[in-house]
Write a protein that binds this DNA or RNA. Structure first.
Lengths: 251, 251
DNA sequence: CTCCCATTTATTGTATACAGCGGCCAGTTG
DNA sequence: CAACTGGCCGCTGTATACAATAAATGGGAG
């Protein structure tokens, strides 16, 4: 009942957007493939109007590309594109952290972040981390990064950070599930958590350059995860956005 | 004839987007005001469907804000918001410049930029600069910044730079017309041109940090122009986006 | 007189019908 | 046999009709 209510309460546009995004990320629509509106209509179960709205929004989101002659196609990304998107995200998070540090924050502001930090500490305390553990980490990590952006207290900055994190492979948690199959998994998590600790410390001490630098480096962990995952050939199945990435081996 | 052709060739959606954007920037629609679709329909002279598409795109562009209960309103910005948007743009341009420097560029790549540089030099050579001179500078300056972004050779970076420059007051030329009424006008232009020179030099010498730093500082010239303009109370009429900025004196 | 509820109206979200355009295939001609 | 052109089909872009929801106003009751 609650499900049906929530399913029905959301707009058809959002429903179409969710359905199509999922379809793209699960590989139902191949990169470079032109998206037929009629096809999208029957996939989402709504009319053409909300489907078209959803297509426009997904284009702005970066998943789709407008075809000059009309319509949209699924965008495809080179490994370089992915790495650059991560760099962009890191740069924006660095800006958010620097502004937070320079402008100062109250302990009341960092309180929820410290709490989040403690929860992650607790989570990664055991020597081994289960698959569900990684899932829990993803949620906590996303929360931490969202809180950090808000610490800038700047709507324009928050907005740009969000937009830079919109692409699934550019998001802070884009490749942590891939980690779960990597031998270096726990090491990386420990280092990431150290970064989290440092950025809070830097912000509280109003060390802008330090806060910015550590967030940039922090984002590069995702880049390393990507490289490790493609090298190991396998864990990439765990990251949904993998279907968007052009593989040189394929062709 | 050519006018009518170009007017007719563009899609109704684009036409509506152009009309509405102009209406917002010229103050036809006040910030905070809810935009009626019917009103927009008769203003743009097209049907509701392309109007709705245009509204969605203008929201993504940052000029509009979605109202939870439905519809859109014109966004309003504090002076702080504007300054932060400029800082965001500077940060992204800094990233583009750094990547260009680190990855290296050929002389063939910087050739058009040097050309652009020379044209600006020529333009600002006279002691006084006419109003038309400032207009010409705006075009040349926009071209220079566009070329710089492309120098990164990174689609994701170029995309984010463009998005950061979309808001009219965040664009590289957002406040140069306001300069034309300022006594410090020519000084600022000389400094800006020096920045242009330095960033090319830094990129060619693969000095990433220098290239990044100078672009950040370069963007802050726009911030200074804004502050000077609001202080002088007057030149703000020359910047269309001024109507979007909340004034503390008003209300 | 004021506050709350109901009704009405206006406005948005959705669906569908229509038209214009481009792409594709086949037929013809050099 | 190959290349070009003409027509047909399917697609997107646009317009409009319909439904549902939110806001506003008026009336009634406390």
């Amino acid at each position: 009942m609650a499900e049906r209510d929530s399913e029905r309460s959301i707009s058809q546009t959002v429903r179409a957007q969710l359905t199509l995004r999922d379809l793209i990320l699960t590989g139902g629509l191949r990169p470079g493939e032109r998206i037929s509106e009629l096809q999208a209509v029957e996939a989402a179960g709504v009319s053409r109007t909300p489907v078209r709205m959803a297509l426009v929004r997904l284009e702005e989101e970066g998943l789709l590309e407008a075809i000059p002659s009309g319509g949209f196609m699924v965008k495809s990304f080179s490994e370089r594109d992915v790495l650059d998107s991560i760099e962009v995200r890191g740069t924006m998070e660095g800006l958010a952290a620097r502004l937070a540090a320079e402008r100062g924050v109250s302990v009341r502001d960092t309180e929820p972040m410290r709490e989040c930090l403690a929860q992650i500490d607790e989570l990664i305390a055991p020597a081994e981390l289960s698959f569900d553990g990684f899932s829990a980490y993803v949620a906590l990590n996303a929360r931490f990064h969202a809180l950090l952006a808000e610490l800038s207290r700047s709507p324009p900055v928050i907005r740009q950070v969000d937009r830079a994190s919109a692409l699934p492979f550019a998001s802070p948690s884009g490749f942590v599930m891939a980690q779960s199959a990597l031998p270096e998994a726990r090491h990386i998590l420990v280092v990431a958590q150290e970064h989290h600790r440092i950025v809070i410390d830097a912000i509280e001490n109003r060390e802008g350059a330090r806060a910015e630098g550590i967030m940039r480096e922090h984002a590069r962990l995702a880049a390393r995860n990507l490289r490790l995952a493609v090298k190991a050939r396998g864990p990439m199945d765990l990251v949904p956005a993998a279907v968007l990435i052009k593989t040189q081996t394929n062709g």
